[in-house]
Design a protein around this nucleic acid. Structure first.
Ligand SMILES: NC(=O)c1ccc[n+]([C@@H]2O[C@H](COP(=O)([O-])OP(=O)(O)OC[C@H]3O[C@@H](n4cnc5c(N)ncnc54)[C@H](O)[C@@H]3O)[C@@H](O)[C@H]2O)c1
Ligand SMILES: NC(=O)c1ccc[n+]([C@@H]2O[C@H](COP(=O)([O-])OP(=O)(O)OC[C@H]3O[C@@H](n4cnc5c(N)ncnc54)[C@H](O)[C@@H]3O)[C@@H](O)[C@H]2O)c1
Lengths: 215, 215
DNA sequence: CTCGTTTTGTTCTTCCGTTCACAAACTCCT
DNA sequence: AGGAGTTTGTGAACGGAAGAACAAAACGAG
């Protein structure tokens, strides 16, 4: 379930606030989901609540973390250390959530001088060696779109089986390899779509401006 | 529909390749969706195809762009010019897709000296003035999580009605305001979840390690 | 010990999105 | 002109997720 990480985050903030027990209503309010849906999600993991009382925050948090798999550390490589790759490498939130950036790779030789976030930027050709040596199964692609498919192919060949792709391209990968994409332009476009609807409740621009079908 | 931007992107690459016509099968292959679903999505916008032929790439692209609302330019403000805010400000993909970054805001005075991507970093308190002057309706939050709700409240009060949130928090906003969130840790956690499943086809870690329920 | 209160776990219903399948419509070749 | 071959648009079936509703279980008061 894609909602488990959200529950986990909410439980972590509850722990930090010293709250020991919470009801499904509380958690639902904190995460913005329906309480019945939340209970159903949790019951899928097992019966970790107590009727009439609620859930033990710390215990539930551990169970969800174990279900997701973040009780162990996941090594991650980031490929493409440009604007975005730099930001990712400097982000502390990964480390605190069970992900360890083991290498930063870039094809451009002029980047190799730099050190980013305490890690040296290494040549892209080191990929296979690093993946093998560190048992990396998760790779992050932050290269330009044209390079993304090539990088993905190399990653898969090297043994990576999960890819987080920031490049605005559809990647094709073999079965058994998971790809998740983050496309910021798409997010903004979805906002713009709704924004346009708010401004023009009905077809303000004309329902179909009967433009010539181009030749 | 959340898939329209994906179609739009695929059509744009087809235009760049000089392809004038494509079938629903072609587009479906390029975007990774089912062709029937794609046809149904497109038919929701109107009958823009020709049976036996397919869709005119350029015409369809314009229709989708118009439906999304990216035929006009959307002014955008970015708040929180740290690691991520810098990357966003330097990203050219927004501009080319109909979004114009009109201001970069940060609460920290030491940032105000800098200029990022040709724009000066301005005090957060300029928010209201900028939103009013530029008719901004879309705001991007790239501040730490603790500040995100405050920033969102100020944005909404200033007149922003769509927010893209990168901070790992659930924002609460009044009705009529859209929020989309991008949480990279959640994406990685979802990958980790599937990764764990691949490694341990059944409950390898023990189905429920019968741990003491904490007192 | 019993009853009322609270909250979980689950069932049942409803609804929405996806997919299949096919008729209508268009092109091209003969 | 007619028929074969394509491809769209859509009606109908399917599946699964979301929400409402309720019985079972725990707790506390009296
Ligand atoms: N910057 C953003 O905020 C942002 C936002 C949304 C999407 N994106 C996407 O993220 C990707 C990266 O964006 P960016 O702004 O960091 O770009 P960038 O140009 O700053 O960085 C790209 C980096 O990738 C490296 N690279 C190029 N080809 C490579 C290859 N074959 N192997 C390894 N490394 C290679 C380059 O040397 C460069 O350092 C792009 O696809 C972009 O569309 C970026
Ligand atoms: N860097 C990443 O790759 C990354 C990845 C995932 C999520 N995020 C999230 O994005 C957000 C920003 O990350 P970052 O790495 O850029 O952090 P950062 O600390 O580098 O930058 C945060 C910026 O926000 C400014 N700020 C703080 N409070 C403010 C306020 N009230 N009003 C205006 N500006 C304020 C700070 O001055 C700073 O410049 C965080 O919530 C982080 O969790 C970042």
């Amino acid at each position: 379930m894609a909602r488990l990480p959200i529950y986990l985050r909410a439980l972590t903030t509850l722990v930090e606030r010293g709250i020991g027990t919470c009801s499904s209503e509380d958690l639902a309010a904190a995460t913005g989901v329906n309480s019945a849906k939340l209970r159903k999600d949790l019951s899928y993991l097992g019966s970790y609540g107590t009727r009439g009382v609620g859930y033990d925050v710390d215990y539930l948090r551990y169970q969800i973390a174990r279900e997701i798999g973040v009780t162990q550390d996941w090594p991650v490589v980031i490929v493409g250390i440009g604007n975005l790759g730099n930001a990712l490498a400097n982000y502390s939130g990964f480390r605190s959530r069970g992900f360890r950036v083991v290498a930063l790779l870039d094809a451009a030789p002029e980047r190799h001088a730099e050190a980013v976030a305490g890690l040296e930027v290494r040549p892209f050709d080191d990929l296979e060696q690093i993946v093998a040596a560190e048992a990396v199964s998760i790779g992050v692609i932050a290269t330009p779109a044209v390079a993304a498919q090539d990088v993905a192919d190399r990653m898969v060949a090297a043994g990576v089986t999960s890819i987080l792709n920031f490049a605005p391209t559809v990647l094709s990968v073999p079965d058994g390899v998971d790809v998740r994409k983050v496309d910021l332009s798409i997010e903004l476009q979805i906002l713009a779509y709704h924004e346009q609807r708010k401004a023009a409740p009905d077809g303000e621009l004309g329902p179909t401006p009967d433009q010539e079908v181009i030749a």
